[in-house]
Design a protein around this nucleic acid. Sequence first.
DNA 1: GGAATTTATGAAAACATTTGCAAAACTATT
DNA 2: AATAGTTTTGCAAATGTTTTCATAAATTCC
Lengths: 343, 343
Amino acid sequence: MTDKKHKKADIISVAQAARVSASTVSRYFNHPELLKPATRKRIDSAVRRTGYIRNRAAQTIHGIRSGTIGVMIPTLDHAIFAEVVQAFSDSVAEDGFTILLASHGYDLQREYAILRKFLEHRVDGVVLTGLDHDEAVFQLIDSQKIPCVLMWNYAAGSRYPSVGADNEMAGRLIAEHVLSLGHRDIACMFPPTGGNDRAVARRDVVLSTLEKAGVTVPDQWMFETVYSISASKRDVTALLAHDRWPTALICGNDILATGALYGAAASGLNVPSDITVVGIGDFKGSSEIEPALTTVRLPARRIGREAGKALVTGIISAGEDPASSLHCAPEIILRQSSGPISG
Amino acid sequence: MTDKKHKKADIISVAQAARVSASTVSRYFNHPELLKPATRKRIDSAVRRTGYIRNRAAQTIHGIRSGTIGVMIPTLDHAIFAEVVQAFSDSVAEDGFTILLASHGYDLQREYAILRKFLEHRVDGVVLTGLDHDEAVFQLIDSQKIPCVLMWNYAAGSRYPSVGADNEMAGRLIAEHVLSLGHRDIACMFPPTGGNDRAVARRDVVLSTLEKAGVTVPDQWMFETVYSISASKRDVTALLAHDRWPTALICGNDILATGALYGAAASGLNVPSDITVVGIGDFKGSSEIEPALTTVRLPARRIGREAGKALVTGIISAGEDPASSLHCAPEIILRQSSGPISG
DNA sequence: GGAATTTATGAAAACATTTGCAAAACTATT
DNA sequence: AATAGTTTTGCAAATGTTTTCATAAATTCC
């Protein structure tokens, strides 16, 4: 029955079909308990017959919530962000929210532009990835008085509630683990830090933890490698082609560590007896790779879920009970890719 | 200057601040060429001072496009979908569209519910993943006369324009490659097929191609393995623990193939001299893994980009020039994980 | 069986915009 | 300086809902 006269099914056409007023149809959706069962049935059938679909745009201009949440991430190409977004989306979907998703590719200008677009759509709240953002972004959110949660990283005094892992802790955990195995000749590989506070925090804390133990990483063992398995594999292969290698390699994330593992394999070296390799993140696949990767778990699913809950709380309670921060603690995961020095 | 009197910046307050009428402000945004440069400047400053942000909801009820596109995927947890979505999003963002993203987790009921939600938000178009959907879903899209593109898979006579790869071709390519290497003792590992037309198509065509060559896959070499590296590693390890193995293993996707490679490594077997392993997809990392994986490339980025372009065309030209199908041909990628029989 | 409640419905105003039409303000032409 | 033509602007109606207030209908009470 797709005939439905094609009268652009609005609330008025439904009202006519049900022989009631538009107000009554509106109530049918928003306060059904106010209607007489008989009327309800009549409208029910009319809705079905006309194929009416509510128009949230029309509701939204009444100050009613739009039911959307703006989600801003650097990129979906990093599987870990995809995982966070998936968990976030599932979490808020339970309360009927749909996400408006956009990625800025680490471009701060774009982040601002996207945020404006979110606001044009009158999102009920926004999630940003990471703690650091352009001051203009924060001011815009302030001025619109819209709930906001910073997701993925956690820091006590963050500008907005933050739900995520403490990156410094993650860096410290992995550095301490490597030190505890007796390593002193250590190489580090981190992604480029431009526009990426997470990477900066991790690198700085790893280096300072090593230094506190009296270990300095020589320049030629400090790699800045783009986030890709192939780049890492290449750099590690080059490193291992020299006559002198480190006994351990700390990678800023599991992607780099995966590439490092492949690089070691391609160089004919054994991990961990020839070299220890560790990562940060515990990405999907890190536990199955040969050898299984020692890393620090950043609980992506949990972060996404909790960030969703926090934001929804902030939205539903409208200011009176703002979203609150939550630390999803990172946790060291010992596997086979790390071992004591020499052997 | 976050003072702005906090008068809920609407178009009228901007008009007052600029000493013009609301209509003029509206024109400032929608038809600026109709305004006198002086007025334009005045409004420009007023917009800035009041911190006004346009309200797309209010525009949308005038039949103006909402500037959103509904994107429906099974899950973002499969990196390949994340990649497609990222490319799609980038593509449509160029034309000012923002995506509304939701995942149904292969649940057809949920797909229908999400579609309704998209329509409530008056999305300008929708993309679905895969060719097969509930008839109710198709009817709903029909009845709303909204542009729709089926993304990821391609088939000539699809219900809506499809942009993607031909799965049968992908399956045939990989099966033929394995046969051409001389293999006759072949095992297959595919994901569970419930609600997943892609998996079905691939499996069926692989089996029929093998059969046409006179090869039958014995039951105990037919694995139905959930999409995860660990499950695949487990199943392959079990397979290789028997006294008789196949000489080749065809996996329904690269995730399963990756797990298989790890399983072979863990069993102390060499790929490809002991067993050939191939996948489908050419996921990120498949080229770097040791040994690099022979697979069929499904061009995810290209598919996402082209699907975006196709849908935007359909939206902008409003019916008169509907979105059109496009086949992004799969391509066999020969790497190290496959080799001739025995050795 | 009517008054007093309670419940159910409708009319109209409100929401933030766009747009057709008409008036006002300019320019150009004589 | 008056007219015609053009450009710029404002008014008011329209968009699809929700909500307040008022009224009509149903129910309860004595």
